[in-house]
Design a binder for these strands. Structure first.
Lengths: 318, 318
DNA sequence: CCAGTTATAGTCAACGCGATTATAAGGCCT
DNA sequence: AGGCCTTATAATCGCGTTGACTATAACTGG
């Protein structure tokens, strides 16, 4: 209080540190085709826009322009990460990018024009283990090993080899779906994704399967996937992606779509049931093929009641 | 790619959206006095500084000026949150604040002058449950209930009452140490902390015990505490706060200081042991009072080996 | 009516973890 | 020196969670 000229007091310095602030949104929905993300430019970029100073907060600014631009009402919104790396965009412009994860229900897609939904797994085909381990992993492993061997010193070789093994479940390790970001960053480091060659690193090996995106949008998407896969295990955010009424199997399929792996059905039902997160509506639907299924709705009253340690899903160990 | 004039393309708009970017650091260490945070202005504020455009990234910028200013080498650094609420600082200036959590070891405190260490629990006395439930909670409960009753409609009354009960362990609920942020925000909403009256809300009841800070620094500190209390349960970050050699009880005391609650000793040792996070040095220390204790060191090799689902601590349910 | 599909309930065993007890090894006070 | 205090370290018990599996019910379509 009394020491007005302390060593550093925020904007007490006259030097201009003005920067530009961008908001980048990863808007997620799940439909029959799987988990989708809202994209622009035919799937080559995530929707982004400048932070409007007129808005109260960053979140309200994001919500406003995404809803305006896409007609999508956003449910849950969560901040992901703030980047300001110098050479992020390739240019010499200084931009701070604040990325967000948003969940919605994909009603009236493409109604207001340009944006479209693209499956996660178009960008990260190695992340979908719902039909067993993707065959492409077996082609990926030797390339990662080769990259590890290419290091200068033995310690780095060992470290690369270990990180690759952990992230990509080599040597009979268990697949960990939450490592989506580490996996993408490892592929980037190994110059196995198309984005890596933009940094001037022209050791352009044939990139691994999977669509690339402009700038670092694919990395942001990987961040969102990892965050969401982690979050659904302890917070009831899945319901933001569900229609008002749903069957338990539909709920399970949604969780499976997000996590990229299959869940044991009886255990899933038990866990959902004993947490009292859903309530029966009494009505049933015959549209599911076999025996008509109960329709459930989300039990809103419980939402804040279990602030933590709720909504566990049987996704623990393999 | 081909649609150059899509609905919105980032900084394609000519309007100026320049803002000022500040970095705010919550630097944490643990000593005999408990968990401490690095502060300036006699504990009234967190160290903060402008984002230097000269640096590669936000993290390196933060690390540079904190180490320069305080002489503290920072170990682990993690981004907390980015704020840009209009009336955060009270002024009409537009500032984006990017807050960080950093862990260090508190060597040579105050060597380079101004900054000093202050205990967490000076700011949040209700968060320390290491000696049982703080008596002040019992004085707090009726004030929260009173606040809940003061709502206009019944639904809000019920909601306030429920949130207060969950956050502050009313009605024989279990104390959840991870709700530190929710608790502070609830007290702010109830105008029971000194910061609340700055917004013009002059219904100045006597504030709850606990030091306040300038601007929203206390909220940022609460965010850091909540994040760290959650993180130590699944990532081995505690070791960033430990000296190179330590006994298991010292490690336990550190975790207890952070989480604000006591841990069962045998269970703690079992969990630490079976995770192979530490290794014996063979040497012992007699400085602990009773039987000489083994000195351990952190098993660095294991750090990235268990990227997730490691370092569990017996802090689950009460 | 039978085969196929899905819904729903129940069982069993392994593991994790909280709680407790027991034993070892040093310091300090009388 | 001996007894008491402190802390360190090891071992055990029991409950609850949860992963894997089996069985039964209800409906559709041929």
């Amino acid at each position: 209080m009394d020491q007005a000229k302390g060593p550093r007091k925020g904007r007490a310095i006259g030097k201009t540190n003005d920067v530009n602030a961008d908001l980048i949104a990863v808007v997620v929905a799940v439909n029959d085709a799987g988990p989708c993300v809202l994209t622009i430019e035919q799937g080559a970029a995530l929707p982004s826009g400048p932070f409007e100073l007129a808005h109260r907060s960053l979140q309200s600014s994001l919500r406003a322009w995404v809803e305006l631009q896409t007609g999508q009402p956003l449910g849950y919104i969560e901040q992901l990460y703030t980047f300001a790396d110098r050479d992020r965009t390739g240019g010499n412009e200084r931009v701070i990018s604040i990325s967000y994860l948003a969940l919605t229900r994909e009603e009236d897609a493409g109604a207001s024009g340009r944006p479209s939904w693209t499956s996660w797994y178009d960008y990260f085909p190695w992340e979908d283990h719902r039909s067993g381990r993707p065959p492409m992993l077996e082609e990926l492993w030797p390339r990662l090993i080769e990259w590890a061997q290419g290091a200068d010193d033995g310690a780095t070789r060992f470290d690369r080899r270990r990180r690759a093994a952990v992230a990509f479940a080599m040597d009979d390790r268990a697949w960990n779906e939450e490592l989506a970001l580490q996996r993408y960053e490892l592929l980037y480091e190994a110059a196995l994704v198309e984005e890596a060659k933009r940094g001037g690193d022209s050791a352009i090996l044939a990139p691994v399967p999977g669509r690339s995106m402009s700038a670092d949008h694919r990395r942001i998407l990987a961040t969102a996937i990892a965050r969401l896969r982690s979050k659904i295990k302890y917070r009831p955010v899945v319901f933001e992606l569900m229609p008002p009424l749903f069957t338990l199997l539909q709920l399970q399929r949604t969780v499976e779509a997000l996590s990229g792996r299959l869940i044991n059905k009886p255990n899933f039902r038990r866990l959902i049931g004993q947490q009292e997160l859903v309530e029966k509506t009494g009505t049933t639907t015959a549209e599911t093929g076999g025996r008509p299924a109960q329709l459930y709705r989300f039990h809103h009253a419980i939402l804040d009641e279990r602030p933590v340690a709720g909504t566990k899903l049987p996704l623990a160990r393999a």
